[in-house]
Simulated assay, not measured.
Amino acid sequence: MRCLPCALVEPTYTCTALPPAYIARGSPCRADCGVALGSTSLLTGHGAAPEASEQPPDRARRRPCLAPSPVRSPRYARCMHRPTISESEIRKEQDNKGERCDVRAMDADAGPERYGCAHYRRKCKIRAPCCGEVFDCRHCHNEAKDSLEVSIQDRHVVPRHDIKLVICSLCNKEQDVQQDCSNCGACLGKYFCAKCNFFDDDVSKNQFHCDGCGICRTGGAENFYHCDKCGCCYTSLLKDSHHCVDRAMHHNCPVCIEYLFDSTKAISVLHCGHTIHLECLYEMRTHQQFSCPVCLRSACNMSDIWQKLDQEVAASPMPAIYQKKMIWILCNDCGMTSNVHFHILAHKCPGCSSYNTRQTRGDPAACSRV
């Protein structure tokens, strides 16, 4: 049943014997609208009682008037537990909610997460000296100006050492490169390097400037050292164990073709000395590729795999027609050329016991090391 002034549905007083136009005597409206419902009030005439002689239909006298069971009427339970709130209290609650939202928005705006970009958190932007446009950082510039959507003639990257102007994100003051804004005094970056014009508010990265590389790196200066022959910084754990390669990081990743020297992604140094993105190395392993994509040497310690291959080869003898067949192989790990028995599974290098070999044609004079 429904109270017209407040349009409140009240299944509590629904009578299963009476027609929908009638409700029971003395049924109060639960919306506290001040209207008392009469014994035979019509929904279309709220509060107006008909003549006393008016009676319900005959079928109503033959059926008992039963209130619906709470178990059979889920709406009954919801209406019984519905709190009574006045319109003024609702407006007051909405106003308080709006004030709390405004306070949270002000707190969010005041935090450092409002400024910066996906690469760095800081309170300044840069004006690229190459094209004169404003970007949040050099990576944002390079993504926009050195992408496949840009024509080859217009592609370029920003030279970080040539940046001369920055724009404060708080007051929009364009100024020379400096840590504090000359207009509002805001700190543009908690970490600031005047050598490579770098700002960053996230000091948890332990940034440091390497004079050998000429750029800032992360991880703490005490945990890295600069290799003059490789021309890049390596972890201190590799100081006496890595294989030096000239300008090891001054090239693109052999998998994703991204320039490695100033990449923000983690880089792994392989046993051969070549470098590759760590995520690209994991991607190769998921495809059962365990050799360096540059020189084909084993990218990690494969001794356990070689032992398993020994067992597989011993358990798979070749037919008699192939038992005397000899082939020339070249080992990708040690570079040794050997003449070994042919096997369908793999060929083992007699010099270093590696199965990372490939079949060649002819004698050693026809083979060359890659």
Rank of each mutant, 00 (worst) to 15 (best):
5 P>N: 02
9 V>D: 07
11 P>A: 00
15 C>H: 03
22 Y>E: 13
24 A>L: 13
25 R>W: 07
29 C>I: 00
40 T>L: 14
44 T>Y: 08
49 A>S: 12
53 S>T: 15
64 P>A: 13
66 L>H: 07
84 T>L: 14
85 I>H: 03
87 E>N: 09
88 S>A: 14
103 V>R: 15
108 A>S: 11
109 D>V: 12
117 C>F: 04
121 R>E: 06
122 R>K: 12
128 A>K: 02
128 A>R: 03
131 C>M: 00
131 C>Q: 03
132 G>H: 01
138 R>L: 13
140 C>W: 02
142 N>F: 01
147 S>W: 01
148 L>C: 14
153 Q>Y: 12
154 D>G: 04
156 H>D: 08
158 V>A: 05
159 P>G: 08
159 P>C: 08
168 C>A: 02
171 C>L: 04
185 G>P: 06
185 G>F: 01
186 A>G: 01
206 N>T: 04
211 D>M: 05
215 I>Q: 10
217 R>T: 10
236 S>D: 14
241 S>C: 06
260 L>I: 12
266 A>R: 13
274 H>G: 04
274 H>W: 02
275 T>G: 06
276 I>Q: 02
281 L>P: 04
285 R>K: 10
287 H>P: 06
287 H>E: 15
291 S>R: 09
293 P>N: 01
301 N>I: 07
304 D>Y: 07
314 A>K: 11
318 M>G: 09
327 I>H: 02
331 C>A: 04
333 D>E: 07
338 S>G: 02
339 N>T: 05
345 L>K: 13
358 R>Q: 14
360 T>R: 09
362 G>F: 01
368 S>E: 13
369 R>C: 10
